[in-house]
Amino acid sequence: MEWSIETVEGATIGCPQGRVDEESWELFLARMNETILAAAAAGHRFVLDLARLDYMSSRGLRALTIAKREADVHGVPMALARPNDRLREILAISRYDKIFPVTASRDVAD
């Protein structure tokens, strides 16, 4: 999994790339937590741009839960953007779309 950060007005955007599974979920969580801290320092929202993420296992969902708690602790609103069809299905099955705002474009999430 690769990770990059972009910043737009009012939002810090984390962009994972590849797969989040048994091998990579810890890195995924660590990068999210770092980015949440950066967003908190900048007074931004945190948007997780899923456009280039191919797959997320239940480990990734668990990481999202933990990251959400971290974001809540720092008062950082957290949103998910641009999941592919597979991820959208996973989010729907797990009902994570009931926990996170999930949008089809980053602009809306911003």
Partner: peptide
């Protein structure tokens, strides 16, 4: 409709 996994929220 369901809800999130137990322990998530």
């Amino acid at each position: 409709e369901g809800g999130p996994p137990l322990c998530a929220v």
